[in-house]
């Protein structure tokens, strides 16, 4: 292809995006667009399956049968999200095995929030309320992103996430309205999950390396700081409503801006966890690697069996 051809294709591509048309797997796309999407979609898929671990930690200890079943179903939904997202990513010409390889070697990232431990039952409420709440804010704009398979996967993901968020808030409400011990569990969980949830919306705009390009491709519609403000504005009244206190002494409603002002985020902690030194980075990654390695003989058996069945079918046909 000549340079001129590429330039034409690029122009057509840009026009399509400007008209809000979807880019589909077989359409021409710039290599950088492909790579950026592989990075983001796989990071998202990895976050779903690593995210199963901190919540999975409480399934066997859930306090009631109703909560146990709901949590099990929720964690299963996350596996389902992982499945659609890996499939969306595969349309960009990379296999699920390769993507797992990137996760297992630490080359690919996943959401840092999952490197925090779930130490009480209330953490399950806090994760649903705050972590899924922040995830929705990040993800709703992606339902109209330019890459078709990703946008379609996100529509389904968002529906389920908003259900999870309500479920989490309902756990917190029950605890907050419960005995003093239960209320203390809820407050403690909010104290521990609040700041990491704010960090989930990404580094400040000044530090974010991908924002500008991603905005252009509609892979991002708002900046990290805008999303964070939206999350805070939405969540603080929810905490007030159930009588919990957001652990930020600088948090204050600002009449002039119509938003909450909030305190300084500890970005050193953010980078420490992103770089692999959070409380559970090692445990999460090794749980994934173990599941994969211990499952190898099972996957091999399934492949070998399928091959034998196919050969038998061929023999019969001949």
């Amino acid at each position: 292809m000549s340079e001129k051809d590429v330039k034409n294709l690029e122009e057509l591509f840009e026009q399509k995006i400007a008209r809000d048309e979807k880019i589909e797997p077989k359409d021409w796309m710039p290599e950088k667009y492909r790579q950026t999407h592989i990075r983001q979609i796989s990071q998202h898929a990895h976050s779903e399956i690593v995210g199963m671990l901190p919540e999975g930690n409480w399934i066997t200890r859930a306090p009631s049968l109703r909560r146990k079943v709901a949590l099990l179903a929720k964690v299963q939904d996350e596996a389902g999200h992982g499945l659609y997202l890996y499939s969306a990513c595969e349309t960009l010409g990379i296999s699920r095995d390769e993507l797992y390889g990137q996760l297992h070697t630490g080359k690919a990232k996943y959401s840092s929030i999952f490197n925090y431990p779930t130490i009480t039952w209330a953490d399950i409420g806090a994760i649903g309320w705050l972590v899924d709440g922040a995830a929705i804010i990040n993800q709703v704009p992606l339902c109209s992103t330019s890459y078709g398979p990703y946008a379609r996967a996100m529509i389904r993901v968002c529906k389920e996430e908003s259900f999870h968020q309500r479920q989490g808030y309902e756990i917190m409400t029950t605890l907050a309205n419960g005995t003093p011990e239960q209320k203390a569990l809820a407050q403690d969980a909010l104290n521990r999950w609040w700041w990491p949830s704010l960090m989930m919306l990404g580094p400040t705009d000044a530090e974010s390396v991908h924002t500008e390009q991603s905005m252009k491709w509609k892979l991002k519609r708002k900046t990290n700081d805008e999303l964070r403000q939206q999350f805070i504005d939405q969540t603080v009244p929810q905490a007030d409503l159930i009588g919990l206190t957001v652990p930020d002494p600088d948090l204050k409603w600002n009449e002039e801006t119509g938003h909450y002002d909030f305190g300084e985020i500890d970005w050193d902690e953010f980078w420490q966890v992103v770089k692999g030194h959070g409380p559970c980075n090692k445990e999460r990654l090794s749980a994934r690697v173990n599941a994969w390695e211990n499952g190898e003989w099972v996957r091999d058996a399934a492949m070998a069996y399928a091959k034998k069945q196919e050969d038998k079918g061929l023999k019969k046909a001949m």
């Binding site: 199963m52 399934i59 066997t60 099990l72 964690v75 599941a291 499952g295």
Partner: peptide, 14 residues
């Protein structure tokens, strides 16, 4: 329930 999140593949896990 102990196995949720630790299956040999996503499909079997689900």
């Amino acid at each position: 329930s102990e196995l949720c999140g630790h299956g040999p593949s996503l499909e079997t896990d689900i």
